[in-house]
């Protein structure tokens, strides 16, 4: 990251860092997709009867594992981005590119954790509730 801004610095930053501003929303977005998928498929199964609810349940449990894998990957990448082990810093209060960079990693990492918890929570009914009753 250079110190000199460029007249079209938005585009520059977007190349360098925009992905990580979006990245902080990737994990919660995965949660949202998983949630919508659960809700939509179960509604279809319970109202139309196709696919049968047993199959929907198994498919959604697989989808849960997939969502968790995606979130784990995102979390791992943002952890590397944050790099608390390498920098030894847990907070990032200074106006430097490094601090901004690690902060975004930190926020993304925490959001990955909360998203994983959310996915597990939402998947629990699939395990404990049998069907549509």
């Amino acid at each position: 990251m250079t110190q000199e801004p460029h007249p079209h610095s938005d585009k520059h930053e977007f190349r360098a860092e925009a992905l990580s501003l979006w990245r902080i929303t990737f994990a919660p977005a995965t949660w949202a997709l998983h949630f919508v998928l659960c809700y939509a498929l179960v509604s279809l199964s319970c109202i139309h009867g196709t696919p049968p609810v047993a199959i929907t349940r198994s498919a959604l449990i697989l989808a849960t594992l997939a969502a968790l894998a995606v979130i784990a990957l995102l979390g791992w990448r943002s952890y590397r981005h944050w790099a608390p082990g390498r920098t030894g810093r847990l907070t990032h209060p200074y106006g430097t590119p490094e601090h901004r960079h690690h902060f975004l990693g930190h926020a993304a990492f925490l959001l990955a954790i909360i998203s994983a918890i959310g996915v597990v929570f939402v998947a629990l009914p699939l395990l404990v509730i049998g069907g549509c009753q």
Partner: peptide, 10 residues
Amino acid sequence: PSLSLGFFSA
């Protein structure tokens, strides 16, 4: 369906 309620409850 109770499954759907479960998602929102969770």
